[in-house]
Amino acid sequence: MRDFSYLRADNIEAARNAAALPGAMLLAGGTTLIDLAKCGVVEPATVIDISHIEGLNAIDVTADRALIGALAKMSHVADHAEVKSLFPAVSEALWQAASAQLRNMATIGGNLMQRTRCPYFRDPANFPACNKREPGSGCSAIGGVTRGHAVLGVSEACIATYPEDLAVALVAFDAEVDLGERRLTVEDFFLAPGATAEQEHDIRPGEVITAIEIPGSAAARRSTYIKVRDRQSYEFAAASAAVGLELEGDGRTIRDIRVALGGVATKPWRARAVEDALKGKALDEATIREASELAMQGAVDHGANHYKIALAPRVIARAILKLGETA
């Protein structure tokens, strides 16, 4: 039997202490943890249930910032009136993630910690080689089925796509993650694989995500999230973009723009080259499309995922054009 012990943490201190135990894993909504345990990918020695900690599910939004507790449910954040009006891309990213049932269970903290959907990662019985699971064991994906794999931020060790939606919007708007003792930008919190594919997040034993803070901005207020996939709902992104736009008083010159990509990179991917190319430029389709191509600088494909290199810039361009139209 795969026995494990179960601890229920009633407060954040207890959670941190327990999280420092060897083999301990936090349980929030459980939609990732239990799934991966069933696949045999994780075998926690201790499961620490944090879902009962009070106050950790608060959502507090002002014009300056959104403060979202780690235990807030995806569906609550998505449906929050001020999140919708002041950070529309955040709400849209959440609405297009997973399914209604999952969003009602899943938490924002757990969402950030979600693992890749690489099919080789999820099937240890048949594919022992996976650097993310077993450092140094190799990568089963390279040379295999790669339609969903990343083209940006890949290494020889791992090409797994970061699958999640919310963090793409968070990265676009310089959000920070609160780990108690430490605070990091969400962008820094996620790690590209490099030679250490097993390290996905800058989080240390005993650390617990308590909240996410998103600074308010004009670009965040005028933002959107476009997610492209074969199926209309309940599918991970083939490519997605979170874009925020602030125009000059003339209504057509770009003052500030934020662009981040999902579904194509090993971590939520900020496309600064696109932002830099467009700041100060007029909102014109040809300019936007040309600049959007810059997001793919350094892209590397593995055959079946080649289409992502063509697709992602179009998603960016369409998101910008959509925001331009809704002046």
Binding site: P119, D123, N126, F127, G144, V145, D230, R231, S233, Y234
Partner: peptide
């Protein structure tokens, strides 16, 4: 490996209501 890699309902795509 001659193996189906999308043998689950998250990866074997069936239409949703939408």
């Amino acid at each position: 490996h001659g193996r189906i890699v999308n043998s689950n309902f998250a990866d074997y795509m069936l239409p949703t209501n939408a």
